[in-house]
């Protein structure tokens, strides 16, 4: 089953059309998408660097990761909402783009990452602070998180550089 009809439907909605046809709304949504990466992506980076023992070593993990969590969640919701609006506006263009699907795969893996490490790391912060040294699992979780998030940014940027191969019909017209 192809998902294309859904992408077509998404792009054809009145809402998506009005975003696409507005000279201002589309860039403003993109700015908000990027601004939330700047504000809250930086917090994710610092949380990972703290677990790796590279930054903020004077502060307990509970403070660095626990107390910034609500802000990262708010940022994540803004980021995903804006991303979805950008997708909706040009859904048919995104559908054949491999970097879009790579990005969605990485986003799904971020969810898997959160589930896998919830019990041992992210839901277990006080125990990590009590441990004599940083547990290996926490460092693995942080390193994977860095790879996933930097990969997400790169895949996102690469979406803009994908040029679909010309179909035989298009090529014949040249």
């Amino acid at each position: 089953m192809s998902l294309f009809p859904f992408f077509h439907f998404l792009q054809s909605t009145e809402f998506a059309t009005s975003i696409r046809e507005s000279a201002l709304v589309y860039p403003v949504i993109m700015m908000t998408h990027l601004a939330s990466i700047a504000l809250f992506g930086g917090m994710i980076l610092m949380g990972d660097l703290r677990l790796l023992g590279l930054a903020m070593k004077d502060h307990p993990v509970v403070d660095v990761i626990g107390r910034l969590r609500i802000w990262k969640r708010i940022g994540f919701v803004i980021m995903v909402t804006c991303g979805f609006l950008l997708l909706a506006a040009k859904a048919e263009l995104y559908y054949p783009n491999p970097f879009y699907w790579l990005k969605m795969t990485l986003l799904a893996l971020v969810g898997v990452h959160a589930l896998v490490f919830h019990r041992s790391v992210y839901g277990n912060l006080p125990a990590i602070d009590r441990a004599p040294q940083m547990p290996g699992t926490a460092k693995v979780a942080a390193a994977l998180s860095l790879v996933l998030w930097i990969g997400l940014v790169c895949a996102g940027r690469w979406i803009a550089y994908y040029e679909p191969a010309k179909t035989a019909v298009q090529a014949a017209h040249r």
């Binding site: 504000l39 917090m43 980076l45 610092m46 930097i150 940014v153």
Partner: peptide, 19 residues
Amino acid sequence: CIHIVGFALSIGTIAIVDF
């Protein structure tokens, strides 16, 4: 990509202090 990661780090750390 490097530019985006760079500003996520700089603006993100400034934002933590601002928050």
